[in-house]
């Protein structure tokens, strides 16, 4: 998987550091990875196999593809398409908001810069569920925004329990996951490269599109993955901010597990995984720079 890409966004410079490390004798420290491998087998590989098993069998342990093909059921298909649409919208919004912010962070002076980064991370200190419930209280008809609007005799804002509220919830919750990887890449871009571009006569727009943007692509791609994937699979945000009126594929899967139908739930999860893998494959085409993601 592209774990290394997601967790560790590398600017070109990082490559040099890595090759330096191997000369220090990485072979002798290989055993250090043992706990992680154990963890990975126990909590990633085995569960995946279990999901695969449940997804491909019936209650009587017979092989079947019915669980997977249940995605073609019009209701499930609609939920999947709607989830794809909402998560695409929120990913685009996150990108539009996050890129300029990351650029500003990169350009600003060191002190205020770490302060702003902290402001971005600060909300994550509180549980995600609580923050989403807080949004419900803000957007509700008797909520904070509408109470203020009502006081000034302004028209009410009626977006709670609509798809807009869900997109808002996704953008709010996942924005830091877009800002941080982009910022991490931008900060590692050698200032001399930018200076050289300017030196050679590129104007600021050309520098942005021909130098900074291509170099920051690995960060953008991790950001997109880290926003798109959780948005696609969420069921909590759509439950809380959508008033359960809007059914996304995550809600369908959750419901299947809740009623104890692990087989259909696993089958649908497998379909969702396929979509995630496809999106990662497409993304990695634009991400030839980064290392350690040779899955495709």
């Amino acid at each position: 998987m592209k774990i290394s890409n997601v967790l560790n966004t590398k600017a070109p410079k990082a490559t040099i550091k890595k090759s330096g490390m191997s000369s220090l004798g990485i072979r002798n420290t290989r055993w250090l990875s043992f706990p992680y491998i154990l963890w990975m087998v126990g909590f990633i590989i085995i569960p995946l196999i279990v999901i695969l098993y449940y997804g491909m069998t019936t209650n009587d342990k017979q092989f079947t593809l019915e669980n997977i093909s249940s995605i073609l059921n019009p209701i499930n298909l609609r939920a999947l398409l709607f989830a794809l649409r909402l998560s695409l919208i929120s990913t685009v919004i996150c990108l539009i908001l996050a890129y300029p912010l990351a650029m500003i962070l990169n350009k600003s002076k060191m002190k205020s810069n770490s302060f702003i980064v902290m402001i971005i991370i600060l909300p994550m200190w509180m549980n995600f569920l609580l923050r989403t419930i807080a949004w419900q209280n803000i957007l509700e008809r008797t909520g904070i925004i509408n109470t203020v609007l009502k006081f000034f005799n302004l028209p009410m804002l009626n977006i709670i329990n609509t798809p807009s509220a869900i997109v808002l919830g996704m953008v709010y919750n996942f924005l830091p996951f877009m800002v941080l990887p982009i910022y991490n890449v931008l900060i590692k871009i050698d200032k001399d490269i930018v200076n050289a571009a300017r030196d050679l006569g590129a104007n600021s727009r050309q520098t942005l599109f021909k130098i900074i943007l291509p170099l920051s692509l690995p960060g953008v791609i991790s950001g997109i993955t880290m926003v798109f994937v959780p948005s696609l699979t969420t069921f909590v945000i759509s439950n809380i901010l959508g008033g359960s009126k809007i059914v996304l594929i995550g809600n369908v899967i959750e419901q299947q597990f809740r009623i104890g139908n692990w087989h259909t739930g696993s089958g649908l999860s497998l379909v969702l995984m396929i979509f995630i893998l496809i999106s990662m494959a497409i993304l990695s085409k634009y991400d030839k720079e980064s290392e350690g993601s040779n899955l495709w």
């Binding site: 209701i75 499930n76 609609r78 359960s244 059914v247 419901q255 139908n261």
Partner: peptide
């Protein structure tokens, strides 16, 4: 599952 299918049709 019949009930759930119908309920999903309501909410879908």
């Amino acid at each position: 599952s019949v009930y759930i299918q119908k309920w999903n049709e309501v909410k879908g």
